[in-house]
Design a protein around this nucleic acid. Structure first.
Length: 505
DNA sequence: TCAGCTCGCACATTTGAATAGT
DNA sequence: AACTATTCAAATGTGCGAGCTG
């Protein structure tokens, strides 16, 4: 689920950080940048006046940034020269861990230099981002989010057999966040099976209206994952956030594959590219007979199944058996058969600067504790050989959590205005809306640990109410909120505070 | 001139509705 | 009537390659 599906009326551009952290500018190697403004992405400020009455319109820059409900820590190596305010986001417990499930496959790509196709209409990632989490409270509600961070300020070029930097990066694009469609869900739900982000789509269309993640071609990006705690079903406060990155998931964006090895590995491992395998219709060997349906023997099919289908793959996920996003397994562990060397790269925690940073670079002393510094994402002039050596092994015992202190005092000041809620919202069976608040709620909760949505898909927002849309909106999640069992509320005050750079509470 | 991008193509997979069977 | 299994078509996800563009 993209944020745009949750907050349609605001457009599709939401940043993961408060606007003062956004770079309306062009980051340079020195951490300073020239002013740059995406005028075509500006959103009329009056659209947000109801939500952020206290904000100066001048703060609303770069593609409707104010509307993020998710003010997360800025990424590493972003080149921002602006000091961040102290983060008030409470941390999740230290035992909250995230693991990259399909690490071996990622490593295979990473060893070559992962390339991701981006298209105007949006392209899924392969390998997909698939993680498992632990350490959550079984009955606590959490959101899982993902975004993509630019790794450095360089644009890259493929030179015969390797990537090398070739000039400055394009101006930053509005950062978007992918919200896992199961969100929010109890910790027991997130922990019971791997969580797949396979529905993330990447696009190079800066005017994309579909909510896909907008990236520049020929740039390096690092996926980042967030676990955000929603304190309880009806809470108006959210609390706790942990962010994670995995170095082997770093990739270069392209509109056409540059490295033939990547092409072959994608074809060999991606089920959707089966038709391009050596025994497929589009193989080089068989292109002359294109148009004729290939007859594959049963034995061949079985052989393929054994070779390429992962154990327990859900080829046709049964309905009502749990969220597909969490159970779909589309990737294949063929690393051993391919004999591709695995680089020494592993889970890379986003470590507070107070702890030993796994980076080889000097942490920016001006950065406060709420900024990630642990990920040594700077890469430049790399060859496939050096591609692997960017991430040293994190020190043992390094925290896997992003953390920052809680500001309890400010928490107490959060008093979302009840009058903003439409009349009768408490009786509404689905979602109420108003200028300042989105309220998705229900009256029943299943037993802890027994969360089991009937379908993986979150239907794009469907208008339910007869009220005029105006600045408010109404949504329904028929797949996700059967019998109104799950609730989520975002208050205008919370949004505003997050926009102002505050935390989650 | 050319690197990079767009678009249409063919093929494979996924998805869900329709239908049949129990 | 309810449930399960199967079939089938539409939707979607792939890489390829020709043509376009700046």
């Amino acid at each position: 689920m993209y944020h745009s599906e949750l907050f349609q009326q605001y457009g599709t551009s939401y940043t993961m950080r408060p606007p003062h952290a956004l770079a309306p500018t062009y980051p340079s190697a020195g951490g300073h940048h020239d002013s740059y403004r995406y005028s075509e992405l500006d959103v009329p400020s009056q659209r947000f006046d109801g939500l952020f009455p206290a904000l100066e319109p001048s703060q609303r820059i770069l593609g409707a940034p104010p509307l993020t409900p998710l003010s997360l820590p800025p990424g590493p190596a972003l080149g921002f020269g602006q000091v961040q305010p102290p983060c008030e986001t409470p941390q999740l417990p230290g035992n909250v861990k995230m693991k990259l499930e399909n690490k071996e496959l990622w490593k295979q790509f990473h060893s070559i230099g992962t390339e991701m196709i981006i298209t105007k209409s949006g392209r899924r990632m392969f390998p997909q981002c698939k993680v498992s989490v632990s350490g959550l409270e079984a009955d606590g509600k959490y959101l899982l989010l993902a975004d993509l961070l630019p790794v450095d300020n360089s644009r890259y070029k493929w030179q015969e057999d390797h990537w090398e930097a070739s000039g400055r990066a394009e101006p930053r694009l509005p950062e978007r966040v992918y919200i896992h469609p199961d969100s929010p869900a109890p910790g027991s739900h997130w922990m019971k099976q791997p969580i797949s982000f396979h529905k993330i789509k990447l696009t190079n269309n800066t005017l994309d209206q579909m909510g896909h993640i907008i990236l520049h071609s020929m740039h390096k990006y690092q996926p980042r994952f967030h676990i955000v705690r929603a304190q309880d079903v009806f809470s108006r406060r959210w609390g706790g956030c942990s962010s994670f990155t995995f170095p082997e998931t770093l990739f270069l964006t392209v509109t056409a594959y540059q490295n033939e090895k990547i092409t072959q590995l994608k074809i060999q491992t991606n089920p959707f590219a089966k038709g391009f395998r050596e025994d497929g219709m589009k193989s080089k060997r068989d292109r002359s007979i294109r148009g004729k349906r290939k007859v594959i023997s049963v034995e061949q099919e079985q052989e393929e199944e054994e070779q390429f289908q992962p154990e327990g793959e859900c080829k046709r996920p049964p309905l009502y058996s749990g969220p597909c996003d969490s159970t779909l397994s589309e990737e294949l562990d063929i690393g051993r058969s391919l004999g591709i060397p695995s680089p020494n790269c592993s889970f890379h925690p986003i470590t507070p600067p107070t702890q030993t940073p796994p980076s080889t670079e000097t942490p920016n002393p001006s950065l406060p504790a709420n900024q990630e510094q642990g990920a040594p994402l700077q890469m430049s002039s790399q060859t496939p050989g050096t591609f692997l050596q960017t991430y040293p092994e994190p020190p043992r015992g390094a925290s896997s959590l992003y953390s920052c202190p809680t500001d309890a005092a400010q928490n107490q000041t959060l008093r979302p205005s009840a009058q903003r809620l439409p009349s009768g919202y408490q009786e509404s069976p689905h979602i109420s809306h108003s200028q300042g608040e989105l309220k998705i709620y229900g009256t029943e909760m299943g037993p802890p640990g027994n969360f089991n949505p009937p379908s993986c898909a979150v239907t794009p927002s469907v208008r339910l109410s007869d009220e005029p849309m105006g600045r408010g909106f109404s949504m329904n999640f028929p797949h996700f909120l059967p019998n109104n069992k799950i609730g989520l509320q975002i208050s205008g005050a919370q949004l505003q505070r997050m926009y102002n750079g505050g935390g989650w509470m």
